[in-house]
């Protein structure tokens, strides 16, 4: 077990966005968070990444509580994320976007950068080499000097995942990675996520609407509805669960 949420509740004013949710993600698992719109999936992400503070409950990551840590500190502990609507740094090249992920791993100080100490050159060379390796893994190295936002949608998605991997995470949170992609791109992405899990030793937690994608990829799913957990288990069983089907009002049927 690598991540555990214990009795997490989140309230915004009077509205309960997440109600008493408990789940565990095991190491190397691909775990899906699903549910209709407004079910509290993205809120759950924001609680894990520290953007929101849980009203009640604990988040335990690698046996240590994450409560109260700043979002950037949680990234440094090994949880990286992507966003539902791709959010690349729009003035920067693909390479620079990925290099931001190495920000806290490049070991030189502000003064060493101003005065161009040897350590600056050594560290820059090291992180640029590693960034290039990640870009090559995602087969986007040829675009490294192009503006990231000039790439196609599918390529931008890859840059965003590459950028997240640059932070050297143990766990990767993907917020609707397949949104806006056509079936063949989705297929390619699913394979990429699977192989990245193996090659980078990752545990993956993802939010997704596309049930086919979830079925193909996830080892386990948690179904949320209006902040409540209504199902946890294998994705194939979820589709047969009465409560889940009711929550989606037959959404699954139309997707299949």
């Amino acid at each position: 077990m690598i991540l555990e949420l214990k009795n997490v509740t989140k309230k915004f004013g009077g509205v309960t966005a997440i109600k008493d949710t408990t789940f565990r993600v095991n190491s190397k698992e691909i775990y899906g968070l699903i549910g209709p719109n407004g079910a509290g999936k993205t809120t759950m992400f924001n609680i894990i990444t520290g953007n929101y503070e849980a009203t009640e409950g604990d988040i335990i990551f690698r046996k240590e509580p994450l409560n109260g840590l700043k979002p950037h500190a949680i990234v440094r502990r090994g949880i990286a994320r992507t966003f539902q609507n791709i959010r690349l740094f729009k003035s920067m090249s693909v390479m620079d976007n990925v290099l931001i992920g190495f920000d806290f791993q490049a070991k030189y100080t502000y003064f060493e950068s101003i005065l161009r100490f040897p350590r600056f050159f050594g560290e820059e060379k090291r992180i640029k080499k590693r960034a290039m390796e990640i870009l090559e893994y995602f087969k986007i190295a040829e675009f490294s000097e192009q503006k990231a936002t000039d790439l196609s949608y599918g390529q931008q998605r890859k840059v965003e995942i590459a950028r997240a991997l640059a932070t050297n995470p143990v766990m990767l949170l993907l917020d609707e990675p397949a949104a806006g992609m056509n079936p063949s791109e989705t297929e390619e992405l699913a394979n990429l996520i699977k192989s990245a899990r193996d090659d980078f030793d990752l545990t993956i937690l993802l939010i997704e609407h596309d049930m086919k994608f979830v079925n193909q990829l996830c080892d386990k799913v948690l179904v949320l509805d209006y902040g409540k957990t209504i199902f946890e288990g294998k994705p194939a069983d979820a589709i047969r669960d009465k409560e889940v089907v009711a929550a989606y009002l037959g959404d699954f049927v139309s997707h299949d």
Partner: peptide, 30 residues
């Protein structure tokens, strides 16, 4: 000196803050 800052991880992080602060935080930038 300023160009040296801009062309270092600090300058990259500054531009990242300008472009999208939330995304910069999600990359571990303080």
């Amino acid at each position: 000196g300023i160009l040296n800052i801009v062309n270092s991880k600090f300058g990259r992080a500054m531009k990242a803050v300008r472009d999208d602060e939330d995304a910069a935080i999600a990359m571990g930038v303080n």
